[in-house]
Design a protein around this nucleic acid. Structure first.
Length: 335
DNA sequence: AACTCCTGCAACCGCCTCCCG
DNA sequence: ACGGGAGGCGGTTGCAGGAGT
């Protein structure tokens, strides 16, 4: 290893743990609890630093750790949470029982990040990358997929990509529609306090309940030629823009928070309440789509006062978040 | 079979935050 | 208010083993 070990000066052992060391650590913690990590190695008869013991226990020896491959659901959850939280691995881990932050971080770095890049998404923002190099890499990735080449001529791909580009445009419009809606009702008496994470989880559960589109499955099958937004399966292309103002957003879960957007023309929002939320305000001209919305999520305490606000967005639609929220037509129906 | 390259993951490092005196 | 210690976190490294040649 290239690094100078931190425990060398104390003559403490580093590197892989032996079964004997594992056994000592487990025996000690099961008997006494970990207590002070710094004091533990000595008490447990281990020639390791406390930090090393803590890491070994939390990442490997803890009895409630789930091992094995990540499921589709877990993968989806990580993608969603990452689009929302960024590299907050410990925060993400709290939503995946039995998974450690280290494991999730490794899974992200070795699998999900690569998949997103291959799909033409920026892994940090979860948005489609617009630079020519990312488009190239995406096309190259597609070209490398043998079955794509075997079964679909390039002309067909070009048509498909064109169609998907149109779907993306519709997505942006839908997203925009959602953002330009009723104002946030501050001071309402029955609003439930909700943290950003709780609100996010509820949004996520909406997805599960409504059998929303599965980005993971798209990522598993990049040879579909999709741009990654997976719009075709759930978006009826026959819906015209003129019909969109009549679309209603239904939220089949019990929580109240708001999503608002700032187009530089004041703030608009959709309030998600128990039952449903209906965007009602007039649509801004299509040209305002050129100004990507900054989305602000506000939570309210039991008194109805806004107690937390978080912002995200300000660019093209997020691959992991917005399509799930917006693109399933089971969420959208005409009045 | 031998070698090289690649990938996954356990483990380490350094920084940050929190807590307590 | 401040400083030091402990724990926690995210980035990174390097080894082991699998895949490819």
């Amino acid at each position: 290893m290239g690094r100078s070990p931190c425990c060398d000066e104390n003559g403490l052992k580093k590197g892989p743990w032996t079964p004997e060391e594992d056994h000592k650590l487990v025996q000690y913690i099961q008997k006494h609890g970990h207590g002070s990590w710094r004091a533990l190695p000595k008490l447990a008869g281990l020639n390791r630093c406390g930090k090393s013991c803590r890491l070994r226990w939390t990442n490997y020896l803890r009895p409630d750790i789930k091992r094995g491959k990540f499921s589709q659901e877990e993968e989806q959850t990580i993608l969603n949470l990452h689009s929302f939280l960024g590299n907050k691995w410990s925060a993400i881990a709290t939503h995946l029982p039995g998974r450690t932050d280290n494991e999730i971080k490794n899974f992200w770095n070795t699998h999900l990040k690569k998949k997103l890049i291959q799909m033409g998404f920026d892994p940090m923002t979860h948005r489609p990358r617009t630079d020519i190099f990312s488009s190239l890499s995406h096309l190259i990735a597609l070209a490398n997929l043998k079955d794509v080449m075997d079964h679909h001529p390039w002309e067909e791909h070009a048509v498909r990509l064109q169609a998907e580009a149109a779907q993306v445009a519709r997505l942006q419009y839908i997203q925009y529609l959602l953002h330009s809606s009723t104002p946030v009702p501050t001071g309402s008496s029955n609003l439930t306090g909700l943290t950003d994470i709780e609100a996010f989880n509820l949004l996520n559960s909406m997805k599960e309940q409504q059998n929303m589109l599965n980005l993971s499955s798209q990522l598993e099958s990049p040879n579909s030629g999709s741009l990654g937004l997976a719009t075709t399966q759930s978006f009826d292309s026959s819906i015209s823009f003129s019909q969109m103002p009549d679309l209603q957003l239904q939220v089949p879960c019990s929580f109240q928070t708001s999503l608002s957007s700032d187009f530089g023309q004041g703030t608009n929002s959709v309030l998600f309440s128990q039952g449903e939320a209906t965007p009602t305000s007039p649509w801004l001209p299509t040209s305002s789509l050129n100004t990507p919305p900054l989305v602000t999520q506000t939570s309210f305490n039991s008194s109805g006062d806004a107690c937390s606000t978080s912002s995200y967005g300000g660019g093209a639609p997020s691959a992991a978040f917005w399509p799930e929220l917006l693109l399933d037509d089971s969420f959208l129906h005409e009045n």
